[in-house]
Structures are given as structure tokens and as C-alpha cells.
Amino acid sequence: MKKIAFFVEGHTEKIFLEYFLTEYLAPTNYTIDTYLLVGDNFKTISKGIDYENPSYYFYIYTVGNDERVSSAILERADNLMIKEGYDAIIGIRDLFPNNRTLLNQIQNSFESLFSDKEFSHQIFLFVSIMEVEAWFLADYNLFLEPPVEITIELINETLNIDIVSDNIETYRNPTTVLDRIMRLGGGSYSKHQTEVHSICSRLDYCFLCFDVTFYSRIQAFNNFFNVFNTILEDTA
């Protein structure tokens, strides 16, 4: 049994992770507990299935509000890694509103916070470029089926973007792009939980994880996916 903690910025990443883990790991025995930071403490939001001996325990901590993923990890890393025996801590945050040229510095600064820890190699930060919605956009099939049901040509012509071959990480504001696409089909996207659920429940995770054509289009997700697999292999 292995324990992996995720620290995420908001409900968008949390919902995405829940669907991703469910789709990717089924039918393995695993359990997912989710928590929300309220004041100084994490409040339990949901408890996963109570298997007798699950292969993996996943804990998703949603930081939210004005709190930051880095601080939440830094404050709890010693306790989780040393006392609680976690195998890895994974932080996920958006690069937005920072400039993309700062990506390496953000990664390096985060790593420097744990450089003096024995478990520094078990702590990871993945920065979605520019927002986690870029990962949703990568699965363009999402827009071709109900309830959106629009064509790639319509997206290209109306929004002047090539959703199939563009490097999605070059989009300055993927949330806005997603909203504009959804509006073409009569919907909208404003990070509301029901909208995130609607999208994440329809994403093709197999396509997202394994179709090599995506790798250059969502490098941040690719990095996350590769490291996540390594963690699972190392700790299985």
C-alpha cells in the first residue's frame, strides 16, 4: 500500500484528478480522500472506498482561497513524509498569471524550498501552462460530441485557432478559449464546479495519456503523467 498526496490550487484541478485517477487506475484497488483547506486546517470533503488492502491511497488537498500550494506543502511536508510515511507529494498549480519565461525559475524556486530535506526527490511541482484548462483543450474530441457538437472547422474559422494541431500551451488564457468554444455550442465555461465535472467526465483519458501526438501539445501534463507513472512503479 502506497500513499500519495496531491496539493492543488482549486476545485478544477481536484475534479480533474479524481476523474483521471478513476479512469487511469481502474480496476486497481485504490482509495481517494479529498480535503479542503479551511483556515489553518484541512476539512474532510470526501472519503474513498474503504478497501481492506488498497494498492494506493490518494489524498487530494485543495488549497483554494488566497493560500498557495507551495506553502501548504512546505508546512506539511515533514509531517506527511516523515511521520505519516507518504511516498510522494505532488503539487499542481497554474503558471497564469506569471509569464511563461518564468517557468524554470518557478520550478527551481520550489525545489530550493526542499533542497535540505532527505525526501526532496519525493516532492514534485507541476505547473500547467498557462492553466489546467489547457489539458482539457488538448482533447478536442470533447467538442465534436454532444452536448457541444460543433466542428473543428467552426472553431478554426470563428476563433482563428487550430485546436487540432496548435500547441495548446501557447494559449495565454486557456479558460477563455474553452469558454469561447463552449459558447459556439450554446454553452459556456467559467470554472463553475458543474462545468468542470461536465468536461472532466467526458474527457478521453486514454487519448490524453497515450496519444503521442499530444506530447508536444501539453508538455506539462506529459511531465506529470510520466512522473506519476514512475512514482507508481517505484512504490508499487
Partner: peptide, 21 residues
């Protein structure tokens, strides 16, 4: 600027990690 890149909360500026930065 270096502190902002760590992604830490403002409050953590008071912590000793500043010297490392």
C-alpha cells in the same frame, strides 16, 4: 521577485527560508 517565484504565501516571507533565497 525570488520569493514570488517560490509560490509561497506572503506570510511565509517571515520564515527563515529567506536567507536561502
Amino acid at each position: 521577485d525570488k520569493f514570488i517565484l517560490t509560490g509561497l504565501n506572503n506570510f511565509d516571507f517571515l520564515s527563515t527560508k529567506l536567507d536561502q533565497l
